[in-house]
Design a protein around this nucleic acid. Sequence first.
DNA 1: TTCCTTGCAAATCGTTTGCATAATG
DNA 2: CATTATGCAAACGATTTGCAAGGAA
Lengths: 130, 130
Amino acid sequence: MALKYSRQRELIKNFLMGRRDHPTAEIVYKNVRQQNPNISLGTVYRNLTLLADRGEIQRLRLGDGTDHFDADISPHYHFICRECGCVQDLRMDAIDGILDGARQHFDGQIAGHITYFYGTCAQCSQGINS
Amino acid sequence: MALKYSRQRELIKNFLMGRRDHPTAEIVYKNVRQQNPNISLGTVYRNLTLLADRGEIQRLRLGDGTDHFDADISPHYHFICRECGCVQDLRMDAIDGILDGARQHFDGQIAGHITYFYGTCAQCSQGINS
DNA sequence: TTCCTTGCAAATCGTTTGCATAATG
DNA sequence: CATTATGCAAACGATTTGCAAGGAA
């Protein structure tokens, strides 16, 4: 399917590229809306899904019930705070070596792994929130 | 909160202990129903949540949109098939060593990690399904 | 009798979808 | 013109919740 330009999609992607906090669709919606008050939630979802499918952005499922999106598609890991729910990038070496261990006693084909970390972020650790 | 006995809860936990395929709430419901036709979906959800909160069972979020449950609470890893959606246990050594790398350049407190693997299960690889 | 549990139905939440219209190539 | 994208609202699937009635301690 050939892709056609759309201002909405451009706004969405640009917004995402300017953030490091891995916003949810709802947050993308609220923000992009300030530049295009007519944009609908459905369009935001459609474009986020489309961009993720094309590999232009990353969809993060961190078990908190809502998807987060990241314009940084380079392989890296994430941390989610169990207190405030914030999501942060983690600077660390790739751990794809764990695939070897997983394949050891397994019959099927393991294509990859999903790994993310959880705990208490720096701000919450200091009791700034709460 | 003191816990009181309930036949429904017992049935649910027993069913789960007899399975290795990490069923969803819906599947638990359909099966337990055969022994107690009056049980409601809400009760199944309530008890699964309660048991998971008490650590008697494990709730698995593998990104397929629905939670799976596992009566085996010993630490182990999981694999989810992208073709048929089945979930299987993975025999492999613990990889908690990855926590060290994650903590290296991180300010907050990392309590743990969630890791699971995906790909094509043995059955689907052989084209048995499809 | 206390209070945890249940069944039922309605409600919630995040996300998707149908459809007629608008914009792009 | 052919096709893709949009806004809107309705539809969805999974899960939660309020409430009155039932069961355990």
